[in-house]
Simulated assay, not measured.
Amino acid sequence: MGVERIYVVREVRERFLAELEHRLRRVRAGVHYGPMTVPAQVEIVRGHVADALAHGATARVGGAESVRPPYVDPVLLVDADEDSAAVREETFGPTVTVRTVESVDEAVRLANATEFGLAATVFSRGRGMEIARRIRAGATSVNAVLGFAAVAALPFGGVGASGFGRIHGAEGLLEFSRSHSLTRQRFALPGMALMSFERTARTMRLVERIVRWRHGRAR
């Protein structure tokens, strides 16, 4: 699991991109990370990079030449169209897209406009928790990438196409259990055999009165 999409507000765009570019240029495939674990994924990464560049993205680090099986060097794609495969789909490679937005509201809208929703990260000096609550994802960290992974008590899992169910925490334990509902009738009420075909007209009138009293109208 890694960061695939980033949305950055315009006022900090250049500082952010300069720092990100500086760090990515120091990362080496085959030194800091290994080859692609699934050979077929190399072609998916190649296709996503090519598609993003065709949809107007600028490669600030790497590019099409970064794909050299079985390795893929870091690729930083800036302002790719939201319809490009690198943004819409999961690349599962050492690539990242960065999109410039005018406001936090726009960033939240674009971040949530995906069929996936495994995890997210929000960086903000004062509004981190507020923004995080608006993100549609199974887990969101504030001011730390994947911070939730360090807290075993927190349930982890996705939403949407990222799946359902949880691991870790109390909810994760429930995934390995099964519920078993038990009920026992202690005594029978005269004329109240509602779970059989022996319901009398008197029984149904009584039920109708109870429903009307409880809900304001008969159902």
Rank of each mutant, 00 (worst) to 15 (best):
A188I: 04
I131K: 09
R199M: 14
V122Q: 13
P69I: 02
R199H: 05
S66T: 06
H48M: 15
P39G: 02
G2Y: 01
H168R: 11
A150R: 10
G117F: 02
T91P: 09
R212P: 05
M129G: 06
E102S: 14
S196Q: 08
V96E: 08
L118R: 05
L53Q: 10
R217I: 02
N143P: 09
S162E: 09
D81N: 14
A144R: 14
G63Y: 08
R28L: 04
L189V: 15
S103W: 11
H22N: 10
V31Q: 04
F148C: 01
V98P: 04
A132D: 11
T140V: 15
E130M: 04
G56L: 09
F187L: 11
H180A: 12
S196F: 08
L76K: 04
V8M: 05
R25F: 00
L76D: 04
L182M: 12
A107K: 12
D73R: 01
H168Y: 07
P39T: 02
R219N: 03
A80C: 13
R166A: 11
E21W: 00
G165Q: 06
V104W: 13
F16V: 05
V49I: 15
G62S: 07
M192K: 10
G169H: 03
V211G: 03
H55N: 14
E65W: 05
A137Q: 07
A113G: 13
A193I: 00
E175A: 11
H48S: 09
H215K: 07
G2K: 04
A107M: 13
F164E: 14
P94K: 00
G138R: 02
A52K: 06
R133E: 10
